[in-house]
Simulated assay, not measured.
Amino acid sequence: MAVVLLNGVAVETIAVTDRALHYGDGLFETVRISGGSVCWLPSHCQRLWRGFERLQLPLASFDLAMDELRQLAEQLGDGIIKLIISRGSGGRGYALPVPPQPQRILLTRPLPDYPLSRPARLFCCQTRLGQQPLLAGLKHLNRLEQILARSEWGDEYDEGVVCDQRGAVAEGVMSNLFWVNHGQLQSHPLHDCGVHGVMRQQVLTYIEQQQWPFSWSSQISMAQLAQMEEIFICNVAMGVWPVGEIGGRAMRLGPFGAALRDLWS
């Protein structure tokens, strides 16, 4: 049974004046729980802390949220916890409330049932990500771009690929994206759009440790992506998922995605 906590207390409702409902004013983290522990907790903490600083949220709420996350993880055992930080109610229009009253919301859910035994099938989305360096990398509550992109495909595909405003492949709708170009691993740097995923960070760290060839690229079009030697996607729920098809075109499976998949299977 799902658990919903508001500021550490089990609830079924939230105030209709909350700024998360009115403006998407807040942050969230989707956290994988295994054996009662938070997977990759330092990476989640780093990204959430950056979000607190960027959105000017009271840092005292950060520590409370982390304590509640650890406690709920112990109770859950295995699954997913979604942590939402809202600025709370108050303020006139877009003006920040003084003092702010952040709300901490935690929701439990089972792990998604991804068909990871087969390669992923990707759809090429028409929706493009807006450019906003102030919000790039963060998991803020404004997800309309992803909602519009997800509306473009049905159950025949597992994930969609989105481009930045220049037409360069940026990431997946729900995941980050890597590809192999002439033997070199590449990914979009996401300086002005997209999400710096926690699984993406684990992959980048492992690539550096193994001294695999890697470079950032913000110049690969959707058509060029389909010509790459290998593609894989990643997030904390799926781990690493090699891609076998993009836009109806079959893709070869390669050694990098397979090795990373097995590492975090």
Score class of each variant (00 low, 15 high):
residue 130 G to K: 11
residue 131 Q to D: 10
residue 132 Q to E: 08
residue 132 Q to A: 13
residue 134 L to R: 13
residue 134 L to E: 07
residue 135 L to T: 13
residue 135 L to R: 02
residue 135 L to Q: 11
residue 136 A to K: 01
residue 137 G to E: 00
residue 139 K to Y: 03
residue 140 H to T: 00
residue 141 L to R: 03
residue 141 L to T: 04
residue 143 R to M: 12
residue 143 R to Y: 07
residue 144 L to Y: 09
residue 144 L to W: 08
residue 144 L to C: 10
residue 146 Q to I: 07
residue 146 Q to L: 07
residue 147 I to G: 06
residue 147 I to T: 10
residue 147 I to S: 08
residue 147 I to H: 08
residue 148 L to M: 13
residue 149 A to F: 11
residue 150 R to M: 11
residue 151 S to F: 14
residue 152 E to V: 05
residue 153 W to L: 06
residue 153 W to D: 02
residue 154 G to V: 06
residue 154 G to T: 05
residue 155 D to M: 08
residue 155 D to C: 08
residue 155 D to Q: 14
residue 156 E to R: 14
residue 158 D to A: 04
residue 158 D to H: 01
residue 159 E to D: 00
residue 159 E to Q: 05
residue 160 G to F: 13
residue 160 G to K: 10
residue 160 G to A: 11
residue 161 V to K: 02
residue 162 V to F: 04
residue 162 V to G: 02
residue 163 C to T: 12
residue 163 C to N: 04
residue 163 C to R: 11
residue 163 C to V: 02
residue 164 D to W: 02
residue 164 D to C: 03
residue 164 D to A: 03
residue 165 Q to W: 02
residue 166 R to T: 12
residue 166 R to S: 14
residue 167 G to S: 03
residue 168 A to W: 01
residue 168 A to F: 02
residue 169 V to F: 00
residue 171 E to Y: 08
residue 172 G to Q: 07
residue 172 G to F: 05
residue 172 G to S: 06
residue 173 V to T: 15
residue 173 V to R: 09
residue 174 M to N: 12
residue 175 S to M: 00
residue 175 S to Y: 01
residue 176 N to L: 09
residue 176 N to D: 05
residue 176 N to K: 03
residue 178 F to H: 09
residue 178 F to Y: 13
residue 180 V to I: 07
residue 181 N to S: 11
residue 181 N to Y: 12
residue 182 H to I: 03
residue 183 G to W: 06
residue 183 G to S: 06
residue 183 G to C: 02
residue 185 L to G: 03
residue 185 L to D: 02
residue 185 L to V: 12
residue 186 Q to R: 15
residue 187 S to D: 09
residue 188 H to G: 06
residue 188 H to V: 01
residue 188 H to I: 03
residue 188 H to C: 05
residue 189 P to V: 01
residue 191 H to K: 15
residue 192 D to C: 08
residue 192 D to W: 01
residue 193 C to S: 14
residue 193 C to F: 09
residue 194 G to F: 02
residue 194 G to E: 02
residue 194 G to W: 12
residue 194 G to Y: 10
residue 195 V to N: 00
residue 196 H to N: 11
residue 196 H to E: 05
residue 197 G to W: 03
residue 197 G to E: 08
residue 198 V to R: 04
residue 198 V to E: 08
residue 198 V to D: 07
residue 198 V to I: 15
residue 198 V to G: 04
residue 201 Q to P: 07
residue 202 Q to G: 04
residue 202 Q to N: 14
residue 202 Q to E: 15
residue 202 Q to V: 12
residue 203 V to T: 02
residue 203 V to W: 10
residue 205 T to H: 14
residue 205 T to E: 15
residue 205 T to R: 13
residue 205 T to D: 15
residue 207 I to M: 05
residue 207 I to A: 11
residue 208 E to Q: 15
residue 209 Q to L: 11
residue 210 Q to N: 06
residue 211 Q to P: 04
residue 212 W to P: 07
residue 213 P to R: 06
residue 213 P to E: 01
residue 213 P to G: 11
residue 214 F to Y: 15
residue 214 F to N: 04
residue 214 F to C: 12
residue 215 S to C: 05
residue 215 S to I: 00
residue 216 W to E: 08
residue 216 W to N: 06
residue 218 S to D: 15
residue 218 S to E: 15
residue 219 Q to V: 06
residue 220 I to S: 03
residue 220 I to Q: 03
residue 222 M to E: 09
